[in-house]
Design a protein around this nucleic acid. Structure first.
Lengths: 340, 340
DNA sequence: CGGTTTAATGTAATCGATTACATTATGTAT
DNA sequence: ATACATAATGTAATCGATTACATTAAACCG
């Protein structure tokens, strides 16, 4: 049976109130009592019962981060950044990955609305319908969205500029002289970042005085994280009679799948096909040829989102900008060339 | 002010005991009372206060997973597997990443020994000294080690066979005719998996009737996750006058750094240098040439470790094998050839 | 020196659930 | 009809901290 505050108080010859003060506001306690209490704590190896503290204070010092999967480079970059901020503010992190499974996502949302489980929720790139997320927004714990936003909701969102990332890649290819560029936007069309990326793609064409070919925009009705789906989509593009001369992949992993497909078909990058990625993951530098991609400051977005969340938790009437947008940069490497 | 059980009881015309029974053991409640309580819960949008429940029951339904970093492929594979098991058993997951920072690791250990924060701890690949981990082992919450073990501690460990992974890669290279094989074991020598990998490397040599050259075993005194350290180590190996003919990298990411270093120097893989990795990460298949590596069932290890942990939590006198070892397979691709 | 502020501590109510035990009603066996 | 088992519910203690309020002692001031 572990020691409780009562025991510490008895051993130190003080009341539990004093012990509690030593722990939470030591400036109210005399040096003498402080020392005696600390000694008693050490001697008895006393540990606070956090459930009791939470019940009394109504604070958990825990936040939940809801993510689609931990295996995506962008996502775990965000999780790490968020954890760093959390730890410096003495918060712990509950990780809830939905895996694109709506039932699982709803179960988590259900859980997170319970009392005194978490003080706040950080929602990263949800796949589920906005109505679900709204449930959380109307719960008791503050909510901040990251890498995502829901139109007409006054919950703060912190985003990287999904429009400009694909815009920059597409414009670069157009400037190289490509006209038949395909967009591998392998997510659901209603998914916010997918919508924005498509917008960036189309805008680049329009700004160049051209029109994109809708047949070259590939999206998935039922998105999964299985690479097989990706492969099928890529096969569809590469094996058609009038093959595109360039491919804008919606992230680096998809671009790498394109690399593999090209190798299998004897197509050379960039001579036969130009390819761009997005996110600047580690291996984008190592592949041959090094991948032209876009640097997105996801970690920065995560950090800021977490800081906003903590502000909302600790300050009842904190004012947070509804949308914060981080800019992105094109990183030119060697995977693009003028069309053959 | 959110509704509490009292309010539900009043509205349903029953006592709080009955409400609690509806939630926790509905078989004790009459159909009529059940319906009335459920209606009241819905009407008032009642949510359990988990802090109160935890205080009373002394159970948190939360487990902590302590990991070095979330960004390593093996680690997040384990985290995902663990989360899947957790969710099916109604547990939530607290993620604690130490980033190889001893102070941070100790802070987390300190935190995790508090009462009613978590029901158990899963410790994955710790970097810190065993004494630290021992503190947890002697705490109140059950502990299971994953990808690691501490000699002479009776805490259950679930491991992949680190000896055999490097053994197989090394033997394969020896059979191809290599004699000057380097081991890039870029971790601290006292780190358990590093010790085992070194053992596997040496055993392969001994089994072939040869002796490894200690000068070709590279380890780090102060390991970090910075790729610069890796690059320095690789430069040291490749630029020495009597270059090794093959490199066994301790994981795939290190192997990819070797690829980059070779490209920079105009060395061809596998003609000029053979390379093997370990872990079979996604991009190992995409690089050119595809990387010969070792498949390690990390997810299986994570799942089993979590199941063991839950058994320990729920069954006071569960008996768990002290060490469980998962076997590994060499995956031969195209990054190795006979020495030039 | 009386009065007032300040510092240090104690007393006890409180947070919101769970559950041992008591109570009542109902059915069943003898 | 009596005794007894069973089902359904209620009463109230309990988990272990925090903190408003009360109390006491010491310090300070004109």
């Amino acid at each position: 049976m572990p020691a409780k505050m009562q025991d510490v108080a008895r051993r130190a010859g003080v009341s539990t109130a004093t012990v509690s003060r030593v722990l939470n506001s030591p400036e109210l306690v005399s040096a003498d009592a402080y020392r005696r209490v600390m000694d008693a704590i050490r001697d008895l190896d006393y540990k606070v019962n956090l459930a009791a503290r939470r019940l009394r204070t109504n604070q958990t010092h825990t936040i939940a981060i809801v993510i689609p999967t931990i295996s995506e480079p962008v996502i775990h970059e965000i999780v790490e950044a968020v954890e760093d901020v959390a730890i410096t503010h003495q918060y712990t992190l509950l990780v809830c990955s939905t895996r694109g499974d709506t039932a699982r996502e709803e179960a988590y949302i259900q859980l997170l609305t319970q009392q005194t489980l978490v003080d706040g929720v950080l929602y990263v790139s949800p796949r589920s319908a906005p109505e679900q997320v709204l449930k959380l927004a109307h719960g008791n714990a503050p909510l901040v969205l990251c890498n995502y936003t829901i139109d007409g909701l006054n919950t703060p969102s912190v985003l990287v500029d999904h429009v400009r990332s694909i815009y920059q890649a597409t414009r670069y290819l157009l400037e190289l002289g490509h006209h038949r560029i395909a967009l591998l936007n392998l997510a659901a069309p209603h998914y916010y970042p997918a919508r924005m990326r498509r917008k960036g793609f189309e805008k680049a064409y329009v700004d160049a005085g051209l029109m994109p070919d809708p047949a070259l925009i590939v999206e998935l009705v039922q998105p999964t994280y299985a690479h097989d789906d990706w492969r099928d989509a890529i096969t569809g593009l590469l094996d058609q009679p009038d093959r595109p001369t360039a491919i804008v992949a919606f992230n680096d992993n998809v671009a790498l799948e394109v690399y593999a497909a090209c190798r299998a078909r004897g197509l050379r990058i960039p001579d036969d096909l130009s390819v761009t990625g997005c996110d600047n993951i580690l291996s984008s530098r190592y592949v041959d040829p090094p991948l032209t991609t876009v640097r997105v400051p996801s970690a920065d977005a995560g950090r800021l989102a977490m800081r906003y969340l903590i502000r909302l938790i600790t300050d009842e009437n904190a004012v947070i900008p509804p949308i914060t947008l981080f800019d992105v940069d094109l990183i030119v490497r060697e995977s693009c060339a003028p069309p053959p």
